[in-house]
Design a protein around this nucleic acid. Structure first.
Length: 275
DNA sequence: CGAATCACCTGATCGC
DNA sequence: TGCGATCAGGTGATTC
């Protein structure tokens, strides 16, 4: 099955799946840490801090999942290969790093083969340093708009694609949706950020928002063990127009899509549609 | 300071 | 068939 790295739509899909599973009355019995050396070392306090606490809400900030409890928040980043799933006895898998045992007997498992993800503990009233640096949510219209983005592009020589993947500028956009949004906006990934005109900034903001919204509606691009009711996982991957399509023809103008490296990552674009 | 590059990690894929 | 090389990329550190 095709897997893609979790960006905002995939994390939001996981959040909804978890929220559906957990409802509003799930209580944590205990947390079991199988190995702590993920991208950052998991705090040992995770194992005991949440014992007996209800999960009052399932939130999301950028690509971080937030398990809210009265004594703090379990913050989870999926990195590139992280997944949450329900794992009943016997369903253990290699690379399961954390089990959240619920009082009703169910067990949530965090699995992450590459260990690029992380779990953190955030106390009430505190904000983790990694969350402090984050830019605006792209789907919050009053926070993310052309005027804001103009301020962040001024004087910046950085490639446009790198800019919109910078989580300090705007959150949730990774290598896939950056490429898709730039294609839709008709902007070349390597374009220097400072050269954008007002109308182009407006298009970029609009297309980032649109592609993320469409992807959320499609349940993301398949990555998760959580499924929408009656569905079989996300299906937005069928809507990719440039991602991983270098050498194939543009869906709009049939020009052969180009491939290269921008910001150290594989990138493809239409040399005709994108300027 | 901003921009570019590297490191982290495992599984899938490719070429010989 | 086997095996080493290569690639994938979110994020934070390092280098230029």
């Amino acid at each position: 099955m095709m897997r893609t790295v979790p960006e905002l739509p995939e994390v939001e899909t996981v959040r909804r799946g978890l929220q559906h599973l957990l409802g509003t009355s799930s209580v944590i019995a205990r947390i079991e840490l199988l190995r702590r050396d993920l991208r950052r070392r998991l705090p040992a306090a995770l194992a005991t801090h949440f014992t007996g606490q209800p999960i009052t809400a399932l939130g999301r900030r950028a690509k971080y999942l937030l398990f809210e409890t009265p004594v703090g928040t379990l913050v989870s980043h999926l990195g590139m290969t992280g997944t949450w799933r329900l794992a009943q006895p016997g369903a253990e898998r290699e690379h399961d790093h954390c089990y959240v045992h619920l009082r009703d007997g169910r067990r949530l498992a965090y699995r992450d083969p590459r260990r690029f993800g992380m779990l953190e503990l955030q106390l009430p009233g505190a904000v983790l340093p990694v969350l402090k640096l984050l830019g605006p949510e792209p789907l919050v219209v009053e926070d993310f708009h052309a005027t804001y983005l103009h301020g962040r592009t001024r004087g910046r020589a950085v490639a446009l694609k790198t800019l919109i993947m910078d989580q300090r500028v705007v959150v949730g956009v990774g290598n896939i949706y950056a490429q898709e949004a730039l294609f839709r906006a008709g902007l070349k990934p390597a374009r220097k950020a400072r050269t954008l005109r007002r109308a182009e900034l407006e298009r970029l903001v609009a297309e980032i928002r649109t592609v993320l919204t469409e992807a959320i509606a499609a349940g993301g691009s398949t990555i998760s063990d959580f499924r929408q009711a009656g569905g079989d996982g996300g299906y937005f991957q069928h809507n990719f127009q440039v991602y991983d399509r270098a050498g194939q023809s543009c869906a709009v103008c049939a020009t052969i899509l180009r491939g290269g490296v921008v910001g150290g990552r594989g990138t493809s674009w239409c040399p005709s549609c994108q300027r």
